[in-house]
Amino acid sequence: MDLQAEYDNRARVPGHPAIIAGWQRDAAAFRATWTEKDLDIPYGAGERERLDLFRPGPGGDWPVALFLHGGYWQALDRSFFSHLAHGFLAHGVALAVPSYDLCPQVTLAAIVQQMRAAAALLHRRFGRKLLATGHSAGGHLTAMLMATDWRALDPHLPADLVPAGLPISGVFELAPLLPTTIGAGLRLSREEARALSPRYLPSPGFPLHAVVGGAESGEFLRQTRDFAAAWGGTAEVLPGADHFTVLAPLAEPESALARRATAMALAIR
């Protein structure tokens, strides 16, 4: 198998620069027009340890979802994804979108810890459990949050701080990345790759719905299918969607994906 071809999504989708530019444009326009927001909330001391929160309205009694961005843990930041809040806010769900430090400047384990810190901050601020969702690398981070032993981090946190997850085009087994150009930037040993692979972690038994595009590589389709089966969740293939267009329905309030995401968030107690 040509693992480079299977996992190099930018090479597989020649039109990706225009799609990513569209994300950036739509996200900036959304931030400029949506008034119920708190930007640049620090969850740590670092420059990129910040999140943006978009609220459905005044007050604070609404479910909260956490969207974790992709980029193979090596690119992008929260500023590309603000517009995804459209699909959540229309159904009364707030959306938090954090940035995180990038590999190889930090380790993947450090990024996981940063996302745990962001989730913990949101719970302390709002007293709510969270739906985690994320794209690509963010799908991996979604699963890692679901698998976290929160009481070991802070005995005051609920054990089920993230009791539901909706990863989109996630990577749940990291070993196949190691021989690729993507893996080179992660600098993982085989042991570290295994320890940071949600596919091999015990299932937390929480609601899980994993989504992947029908036009994605065989490996992405396999990873989504195998991970959902291992954790007792459900898997969905979006017909015709590639690794980049698969994210678009999350910003559309009436899409099936946005409705499923918000229903999962609303079901959390």
Rank of each mutant, 00 (worst) to 15 (best):
G22C: 11
L177F: 09
D38P: 12
W73H: 06
A143G: 04
F227R: 09
A109L: 05
A230N: 05
P179I: 04
A90M: 01
A18L: 14
W73C: 13
A21Y: 05
E216W: 11
L145S: 04
D8F: 13
L68E: 03
F30R: 05
F206H: 13
A65C: 04
A229T: 11
A65Y: 01
D40H: 08
A184F: 10
R12G: 06
V97R: 03
A265G: 02
G127T: 04
F206T: 08
Q4C: 11
S99K: 11
G134H: 06
G138S: 08
G22P: 12
P98Q: 00
R259F: 00
G233A: 05
M144F: 10
G213H: 04
G165A: 07
D154N: 05
A230V: 07
V162F: 12
R10E: 15
R31Q: 13
T133C: 15
T224E: 03
L89D: 01
A256Q: 04
V112P: 14
L221H: 11
M1C: 08
A261K: 04
P253N: 01
A147T: 10
S197Q: 10
T35Q: 15
I182V: 10
A267P: 07
S203A: 15
Q113D: 13
P56R: 02
G213D: 04
P63H: 06
G22V: 07
Q113L: 06
M146T: 08
A32P: 15
F81T: 09
L84N: 10
H83R: 10
P176C: 06
E47D: 14
T107Y: 03
Y72F: 15
R116T: 08
E47F: 06
L166W: 08
E6M: 13
L131E: 03
P63G: 06
A265N: 00
E236C: 03
T234A: 14
V162T: 14
G185I: 10
A94E: 02
A85Y: 00
F54E: 01
T35M: 13
H69R: 07
A235M: 11
E236T: 13
R55Q: 13
A119K: 10
P167Q: 09
P249S: 02
R190L: 12
L178Y: 09
L68G: 00
T33P: 10
G139M: 09
R128E: 00
P202V: 05
L68N: 00
A137I: 09
A21C: 08
A110R: 13
P176S: 02
D154A: 12
S79V: 12
R190V: 13
